[in-house]
């Protein structure tokens, strides 16, 4: 099994006071370049742990992650993460938050004017060019998340990792951001892994939906391929039989076969 990103037999144990806790076990997945993959599962199933391992923020106890032929063993800008709570630096403006990443990644390659251009270009991609001088606490939740996405995109990562990026947003803002992410995916042809617990979000955005079993020792239960043409339009996609099929498959997995006890 070899892809652009290869997750090979990854397991993760946490040492706790009560002994070793196995969060993930034998997770294997190959993702092609340009693919949009969602990981869905009940909370506590280890999906964020998996994302952190891909990001390099956390080391796998067993197995390995390979990106473009190289073993992932530390975090780096080639795997940009958009965190759930945006994690913008509150003392920097939207522009400066993105610029910090641009300067760090392209400081030696691009001139100052080019970096300025690239920063503004990425803010424009997420429709935030009008608010580049504002600080995070002057922005709404959705706008902050947009800037967070711009910062991740600006690193020109090989793979974009979204950790429940819309989890804290209201339904309308959520829909707007989903549209923006689809548009960016189409324009930049990025490879994306997105953690979510929203079934509709997963079906609408993904090429494949990876369903995780409940922990401990969570692993991949099923994978659903979403064969909807791109570009997808929210209202048209919802009415297709393929959408209904995928939605049903994921719902059945989550609420019949792997329903949570709680």
């Amino acid at each position: 099994m070899h892809g652009y990103l290869t997750i090979e037999q990854v397991g993760k144990n946490f040492e706790t006071a009560k002994g070793s806790f196995m969060a993930l076990s034998e997770v294997s997945l190959a993702i092609e370049k340009g693919e949009f993959v969602s990981i869905i599962g009940h909370s506590g199933c280890g999906k964020s742990t998996l994302l952190n391992i891909v990001a390099g923020l956390s080391r796998p106890s067993t197995g390995a992650v390979l990106l473009d032929g190289n073993v992932v063993d530390a975090p780096g800008p080639d795997r940009a993460v958009v965190f759930q709570n945006h994690s913008l630096l509150p003392w920097l403006t939207a522009y400066a938050n993105v610029r910090l990443a641009v300067d760090k990644v392209f400081g030696r390659i691009k001139s100052s004017a080019e970096r300025d251009q690239w920063t503004k270009h990425n803010l424009a991609l997420v429709h935030m060019d009008h608010a580049q001088g504002k600080k995070p606490d002057e922005l709404s939740g959705g706008m902050r998340q947009r800037v967070g996405i711009a910062r991740a995109l600006a690193m020109q990562p090989k793979i974009l990792l979204l950790d429940e990026p819309f989890g804290a947003l209201d339904a309308l803002t959520r829909a707007h951001l989903q549209d923006t992410v689809m548009e960016i995916h189409r324009q930049t042809k990025s490879t994306v892994i997105m953690i979510t617990h929203d079934v509709d979000e997963a079906v609408l955005l993904s090429d494949r939906i990876v369903m995780m079993t409940n922990g401990p020792a969570a692993t991949i239960g099923e994978i659903c391929e979403v064969k909807l043409d791109r570009p997808r339009r929210r209202l048209e996609a919802v009415d297709t039989p393929e959408y209904a099929r995928c939605r049903k498959q994921v719902l059945q997995f989550l609420y019949e076969r792997h329903a949570r006890a709680a």
Binding site: G56, V105, M155
Partner: peptide, 19 residues
């Protein structure tokens, strides 16, 4: 989260301290 950002961007010790 800020530490994670610093790690993803590979800020060195001095950059982390200042920024």
């Amino acid at each position: 989260d800020y530490r994670n950002i610093a790690r993803v961007l590979r800020l060195n010790g001095w950059e982390y301290f200042i920024k």
